[in-house]
């Protein structure tokens, strides 16, 4: 009985706080990530000034993430041409597999902008539960759309959102 009470209060507080915050678009949180050359980058510098930016959180061990990035690679040149899109892939691989990321992405022929979030600082700041998780960010650095998980074909839904936000 006590557990149910705790549970209900817990959910209510959460719903109340979401209510307070839905009036405006959120910016990307400012955290540090690494590029593949080991340079520290501020997340605020990621914004695509020429158009929209897709941020995809992924990991080398995450199967749906790899399916998603393969699908995005197939359409990337069209999207760049039609909508000036920049795709940023942020790996949450920790020290078990982060050393494999450069070889992995180049060996797949992927052409996105790659970054490492080795201790999940940015993942935590963006309240991501699991990878894959993708965001659509506008020129001002505001998050206009996001999606948890990936099912085959989701990139078509993402492209519809891109067209809506052009």
């Amino acid at each position: 009985m006590k557990s149910i009470f705790i549970y209900i209060s817990f959910v209510s507080i959460f719903i109340a706080s979401t209510g307070f915050s839905q009036n405006r678009l959120k910016s990307l949180p400012n955290t540090q990530i690494e590029d593949l050359n080991g340079n520290t980058i501020e997340t605020s510098s990621l914004v695509n000034e020429e158009g929209l930016m897709v941020i995809s959180f992924w990991a080398t061990w995450c199967k749906p993430c790899i399916i998603e990035l393969n699908e995005l690679q197939d359409v990337y040149s069209d999207w760049k041409e039609e909508a000036n899109i920049k795709i940023v892939a942020i790996s949450i691989d920790d020290s078990r597999s982060s050393s494999k990321v450069p070889g992995f992405v180049r060996g797949k022929g992927w052409e996105f902008d790659f970054y490492l979030d080795k201790n999940s600082d940015l993942k935590r700041a963006m309240n991501i539960t699991d990878v894959p998780h993708s965001f659509l960010v506008n020129k001002e650095g505001k998050i206009v759309w996001q999606h948890a998980g990936y099912s085959l074909g989701d990139e078509e839904i993402l492209f519809e959102e891109i067209l809506k936000n052009l």
């Binding site: 050393s99 494999k100 450069p102 070889g103 992405v105 060996g107 797949k108």
Partner: peptide, 15 residues
Amino acid sequence: ANVGYSIKGLGLTIN
């Protein structure tokens, strides 16, 4: 020790 070599289309990593 981690060693890596990668170019477009090829990636090699040794741990």
